[in-house]
Computed example of a mutant assay.
Amino acid sequence: MRRVRATPVLLRATPNLLRAALALPRTAVVCAALLLLASCGMTDEEDGHAPGAPAGVTAAAGSATSVHVMWDAVTADPGIGTYEIYRGTTKVKEVAGSEHMVDVTRLRPATLYTFTVRARDTDGRLGPRSRTVQARTPVAVAADHSAPTRPLTPQGRVIGSRAVQLSWGGSTDDRGVVSYDIYQGGAKIHSVGGAQTATVVTGLRPSTRYSFTVRARDAADNLSPASTAVPLTTAPGNDDGSGTAPTDFRASTHRGDDGAYYIDLSWVPPRTDGVVTEYQIQLDGQAATSLVWGGTPPRDHAKYSFYTGRDTGVSHRVRLRARLPDGTWGGFSAERTVTTGDAGA
């Protein structure tokens, strides 16, 4: 339940009130003061604890005008609603509580910036700032169309069931490498500074096979070709993967103004350590379309409609799955059957 902050009440002490208070025994004055604070100073919002400060905050320049900021997830009751990212004292970004990294853009080249992160829980309580981290954007370069070379000889090893360590040979660039992006399959899942040629990727799933590649980025945002792939399989753990499928999946059909039929889908996104932005929709056992959210993807309920034809009385089987923050595909939702011209199911 959302708590409502009480409006503070300003009490003005009159001379008669002060004389009466001074005439009271000391214990009575203390009790009256405590009673006054309890009735006027406390709010419903203060009967819990604000979330703690995010730990593990890092910042690295991604280009001459951007910095990549990352942090560890904060645990809070009832949960984290959003994270706020500050450049100095100015809030520059706000992301969903499921996100733990962001690119801060529109920065000045060759400038030192400081960043902090704060967590806000779903009841609206704002936690303290994280430790301050710094990042300096490189000097801007004009008309740079030359990409860095491919990162060389990438290697990796498994660190338990949820993390791997990667290393690679550095790339070269006529203006300098600013950052390295780590991909799992075709999804970017991590980023480090250009002086770093090793990293630990966390938030993975147990007993899961991954394929990692690395790409170098220069100050003009030119990307190198991908390195050769590093296949790794995480160690066994207690995650059976059942939590990776969208839930409360529903499907129906409607007829549009153009006379064609559309399938309407709704679902609850899987709860993951990160944000889900991409889904694959399967129709009649075959991949039909990919859905990539622009802007802020929904966290509670998602909806999508797509064209299915003009014929009435045609039945279709439909289900979908999410691309998880670690770059792999999660489990499929339950399968639904719909028939064009029906009210839906």
Score class of each variant (00 low, 15 high):
R175H: 15
K188H: 02
S161W: 03
S146K: 13
G194Q: 05
D174H: 13
Y183Q: 07
Q184G: 06
V164K: 04
G169F: 08
R150C: 05
T172I: 15
D173E: 04
G169P: 11
V192A: 07
K188Y: 00
A195L: 12
G156Q: 07
V201T: 00
V177W: 01
V200N: 02
Y180R: 12
D173I: 01
V178I: 11
V178F: 07
Y180V: 12
A195V: 11
R175W: 11
G160L: 05
A198Y: 13
G176S: 08
H190L: 05
L166T: 06
V178M: 13
G186N: 15
S167H: 07
L152V: 14
V200G: 01
D144I: 11
I182V: 14
D144M: 12
P154K: 03
A142H: 07
Y183D: 04
Q165M: 12
I182W: 03
T149C: 11
V201D: 00
R157D: 15
R150D: 01
V164C: 08
V164D: 01
Q184T: 04
Q165T: 07
G185T: 08
V200Q: 12
V178P: 11
S191E: 09
S171M: 11
A187D: 00
A147C: 06
T199C: 11
A198H: 14
D174S: 10
G176D: 05
T153F: 10
T172N: 15
Q196G: 10
D174T: 14
L152G: 15
I189A: 04
S167C: 08
V201F: 02
T197H: 14
Q165K: 13
A187F: 04
G186W: 13
L166Q: 08
I159G: 03
P151I: 02
G194A: 08
V201H: 05
P151C: 06
V177L: 07
H145A: 12
D181H: 09
L166H: 12
V177S: 10
G160E: 04
A187K: 05
Y180G: 10
S167G: 13
T197I: 13
A187R: 05
Q196W: 06
Y183N: 05
T199F: 06
P151N: 02
L166R: 09
V200Y: 02
D144A: 09
D181P: 06
K188Q: 10
A147F: 02
